[in-house]
Amino acid sequence: MLSFALTIAFALVGAAFALSFLRLLKGPDATDRILALDTLSINAIALLVLLGIHLASPLYFEVALLIALMGFVGTVALAKFLLRGDIIE
């Protein structure tokens, strides 16, 4: 039963990836794209956790933690760039 639930969950997270990716392509503003990238990194964490359960391997936890860290730092850096980059014109 768990493997069946995992299959559904993989499909849902895959659809989430697709929707975020569409938003990333569509824009319309840079902030929308940054938000889409942030969502993609959170979806990646979800996918890695699911993969960890599926393969019964605790190794993927570290990867998820690292992606959480990197995603946050990237989002903050990009948002800061938008805030500062517009001031100096």
């Binding site: 849902l12 997270v13 659809a15 989430a16 990836f17 929707l19 975020s20 569409l22 938003r23 938000l35 889409a36 969502t39 959170i42 979806n43 979800a46």
Partner: peptide
């Protein structure tokens, strides 16, 4: 929930 979040984004 992850799917609904991305759905909202889209």
């Amino acid at each position: 929930f992850a799917f609904i979040g991305s759905l909202g984004l889209y």
